[in-house]
C-alpha cells in the first residue's frame, strides 16, 4: 500500500465556503465578546469594603428580623497584578469586578451544558468556636482549578471519577490543567479553609448575563453543635458582580 496517498486523500478535504464564513463570523463574535470578558479580569475596585474583619455581623434575616451572626464572610478575588483583594460581605452591597479566565468550550461531563462564567471569587469565614462551614449555591457550581500529570491524564477512569471536565495543555508542557467540578455544595472544616480554593462558576444566558439572582447559603456549625446561617445574594451589574447579605 502506498501511504503517500494518505496525503492526497486527506488534503482533498476542504471546508465548505458556508462553514468557513460561519467560523469567521463566530470567532469574530466570540472575540468581541471576549473583549468584554477580558475586561472583567481587572479586579480593581470593590466598594462597600470593610477593611477590618468584623465579628458579630448584623443583618436582616428573611423574615425582616434584625439578627447578629457570630461570623463574618469575606470574599476574595485576585487583581490583575496578582494581589489578593478581599471584602467583607455585609447587607450593604459589595461589588467585585469579575476576574474571569478564558474557559470557552468547556466540556461538561454531567451533560447539562450550562454556560458558566468562571470567577476566581472564593470565600472565607472568620469567627470563633466554628467547627464546619457548608456552602450551597442555588444555581451554578463550585469549581477548583487543578493541575495533573500526563499519566493521570491518560487514566480516563481517574479523570471521570475526579469530575475533571475541561482539560488543556500548553504545547511542550507535561502539566495538564483542568476544572474539577465540586458541585453545588461543599463542607469544609474551619481550620482547613485555606486548603479548599473553590471558586464560583455562575450560569449565564449565553451572553454573559446572569438572568436570576443567585443565592449562596452559608451554614456555620459551631463546636457546641448549634448552627447559624447567612445568605449571600449574587447579582450582576454591567461588568461586575455584587455580593451582599440577604
Amino acid at each position: 500500500m502506498d501511504f503517500e496517498k494518505i496525503k492526497d486523500a486527506v488534503t482533498s478535504i476542504e471546508m465548505s465556503k458556508a462553514m468557513e464564513d460561519r467560523v469567521k463570523e463566530n470567532i469574530g463574535k466570540k472575540k468581541s465578546v471576549q473583549v468584554n470578558y477580558k475586561r472583567w479580569i481587572s479586579v480593581a475596585c470593590a466598594f462597600g469594603i470593610l477593611l477590618s474583619i468584623t465579628i458579630g455581623m448584623p443583618y436582616i434575616n428573611n423574615n425582616g428580623e434584625f439578627q447578629v451572626a457570630n461570623f463574618a464572610i469575606t470574599a476574595y478575588a485576585l487583581s490583575d497584578d496578582g494581589k489578593q483583594i478581599d471584602t467583607t460581605i455585609t447587607s450593604e452591597k459589595a461589588t467585585i469586578e469579575l476576574s474571569t479566565e478564558d474557559r470557552l468550550g468547556v466540556v461538561s461531563m454531567s451533560g447539562d451544558g450550562a454556560n458558566l462564567i468562571f470567577t476566581d471569587v472564593r470565600f472565607n469565614i472568620i469567627g470563633e468556636q466554628i467547627d464546619l462551614i457548608t456552602y450551597t449555591i442555588s444555581e451554578g457550581k463550585f469549581i477548583e482549578d487543578v493541575t495533573f500529570s500526563l499519566k493521570e491524564y491518560k487514566d480516563s477512569e481517574w479523570v471521570r471519577s475526579e469530575k475533571i471536565n475541561f482539560i488543556s495543555n500548553e504545547p511542550g508542557s507535561a502539566v495538564y490543567k483542568g476544572i474539577k467540578e465540586i458541585g453545588n455544595s461543599y463542607t469544609v472544616n474551619y481550620n482547613e479553609q485555606d486548603q479548599h480554593k473553590y471558586t464560583l462558576a455562575i450560569p449565564h444566558d449565553g451572553n454573559y448575563v446572569i438572568v436570576e439572582d443567585i443565592i449562596i447559603n452559608v451554614n456555620v456549625k459551631y463546636i457546641d453543635g448549634h448552627s447559624e446561617q447567612q445568605n449571600i445574594v449574587v447579582t450582576q451589574e454591567s461588568n461586575s458582580i455584587s455580593l451582599k447579605l440577604n
Binding site: 470567532i27 466570540k30 477580558k38 470557552l104
Partner: peptide, 15 residues
C-alpha cells in the same frame, strides 16, 4: 470538527 476548529481559533485569539 467545526466546533473544535472554532474553539481552537478562539483560544488562539484570546491567548
Amino acid at each position: 470538527a467545526e466546533d473544535v476548529v472554532q474553539d481552537t481559533f478562539i483560544t488562539y485569539l484570546t491567548k
